[in-house]
Amino acid sequence: MITALATAGLGAAVAFRARDDRMEAKPMAEAAVDLIVDRVAKVFPGPQGPVTALSPTSLKLSRGSFVAVIGPSGCGKSTLLRIIGGLETPDQGAVLIRGKSPEQFRAEGELGIAFQDPALLPWRSVRRNVALPLQVLGRRVADHAGQIDALIQLVGLAGYEDALPSQLSGGMRQRVAIARALVTEPSVLLLDEPFGALDQILRRAMNVELQRIWMKSGATALLVTHGIDEAVFLADEVAVMRAKPGRIAEIIPVPFPRPRDPALMTTPEFHEICDHLAALLGEAGDEA
């Protein structure tokens, strides 16, 4: 276990970590910090002058933890996620993932991402869509064939390996996107409202699935979402953001043990946290 953690930062070695090893590493997760967002700020030019998308914001994610970011539109939560993924460069501050910049970290295939839109290549089958990150990283897809099929099974799409995205339902496409995000065995998983386009019923089912898949993967996860119950059900910590300027207002711990059962969502404790978050978000709304 200790060796697993020690080698985790060593680039190439990470890719070949045994899955079981990583699961065992989970209970010790609180020890190490995986991801540091250090006073990151971003200003975008707008039609009426510059807009502060993100005023200096800091955040820490422990290894193997699940953190949800929630807030009103325009609070900078997506910007924060994009900066962590190296898709935007911050004007100030820095992001360190296991001591590396996002650009270095992602070139090693240590980052996985899923968007609100599954963004599948319409001409590729499920299997080849899942394989895309490997190809971009220049790895041989044939070496990972077994792992790809196992992932497709993990997200519940066994039998659909050769289907095209147009033949799948919205929820199934989103599962493909999740499988694709996991194919490089990333140590950090970025989820940008991955179920935002699904209806409430499907969304709940997918949340249960996501918890199961994430627990198997052992990755550190950052979820950006609009859904209060989704955040509380999935996360160890919920960061509440506010707009104008975009910032993290408060971080609320969610202490429920895992694996969490859907029945949790009917308990008073669950609702208490949800109500608390709703109140915080309500204040944020009044401000805006």
């Binding site: 898709l87 992602r106 963004a119 290549l121 895309l132 990150p133 971009v136």
Partner: peptide
């Protein structure tokens, strides 16, 4: 999003063109 996706895995313009 596809451009983001390719970049997340360290791909540049050449990979985006190809894939």
């Amino acid at each position: 999003r596809l451009s983001d996706l390719v970049r997340i895995y360290g791909g540049r313009e050449a990979a985006l063109m190809r894939f």
